[in-house]
Write a protein that binds this DNA or RNA. Sequence first.
DNA 1: ACCTGAACACCGTTCAAGT
DNA 2: ACCTGAACACCGTTCAAGT
Lengths: 224, 224
Amino acid sequence: MTEQDPTRRVPLTRETVLREAVALADESGTAALSMRGLARRLGIEAMSLYHHVANKDAILDGMVDAVFAEVEAPAIDGDWRSAIRARCSSLRHVLVRHPWAVGLLESRTSPGPETLRHHDRVLGCLRRAGFTIAGAGHAYALLDSYVYGFALQENAVPFDPSGQTPEELAALATAIMADFPRDELPSMAEMTAYALRPGYAFADEFEVGLDVVLDGLDAHRATW
Amino acid sequence: MTEQDPTRRVPLTRETVLREAVALADESGTAALSMRGLARRLGIEAMSLYHHVANKDAILDGMVDAVFAEVEAPAIDGDWRSAIRARCSSLRHVLVRHPWAVGLLESRTSPGPETLRHHDRVLGCLRRAGFTIAGAGHAYALLDSYVYGFALQENAVPFDPSGQTPEELAALATAIMADFPRDELPSMAEMTAYALRPGYAFADEFEVGLDVVLDGLDAHRATW
DNA sequence: ACCTGAACACCGTTCAAGT
DNA sequence: ACCTGAACACCGTTCAAGT
């Protein structure tokens, strides 16, 4: 935030505060997101923030809502399966782009307007697809559990396999397997060796699991 | 931690520190888990903790591993489906009993011994059930994504419907629905009304979704 | 209306000093 | 070996004061 004309600076708004809070968390993690640090980034003193948001909790609420605003709503035309697939894929990408978001969901209890709006679009898509209210409840719980949980695990993967050369991956694999108790943990050893091979990427598991979930939902669409 | 004999107190260990850290987070949340607060609970000064753990991060790592130690490993005899079902149910209960745990998973990168051991038992169960390594990878990613995500959502539900009388629930329902933009969010309004009825509990959705996942895995067991 | 300096009650962690 | 007091560089937030 460099300011060209310090005497006539653009007035601070709630939207600017939230946008920079998201950017700061993206770049430096949620631990670096302090009122003082955010203020510094905005070229302002920490106490000025309290004129635009009630407190830090309100910033976290606003950040989660801003994240939901980025998620593609399901298309209203076309088949429900590809519409829901696209929105789940979009949700996952958003949660990986903002790795702090899924951890924040746990503590936020009052959903914002963008969050409510998004939920409404997804539920509407499921209802139009033929799910009963109860069925839409089952489907939504299953779908979002899967996407949230997958993003949680994906963010916890310690390294990015696509960003490494095959040689680096092989070196990492032997390093990890070296002090690995193969006889005590045979299945883990097997899986670790498998997952460290050049062709494997945890991210690819997403589509596999999502297909299983969508197939299951399709089978229950009429019976639920 | 009341001390009967202050002159001959039981020496502090890493295990005691972790046990009390888990208890403190359970009772007061992760925000209340400070080195000073934990020390106070142990009747000690904050700096003494650094003799038993490297730093606060090591405590968080140890807490996550302690949580995994509580999860029931799948049975080795009997069919894989009920074994995996029981372990997923156990994992969910543990994550609800320790609501801070699922939020911590995101930031922990190096799994502890109990965590590795548990993963090994689950993978072994899947391999014995006939899944290939690739298939076990698909299955495990899907299963844990579902359970983690479900626990995440369950912990975020703002109220416990089972702890309320039908009258309280009805009052809450009308209060929420009163300032709800029905025309803007018709599907959300419909679902909210449905979910606030006396018979509904979000927790019940767990078994429904788990069945869909297990059915899907069973269908792919031979083909993956 | 919008911003800020000083202050309060907290943090995690280091380090030298105690027993 | 185990514990601690003082100190450092941080937190979120309040409040009275500035423009």
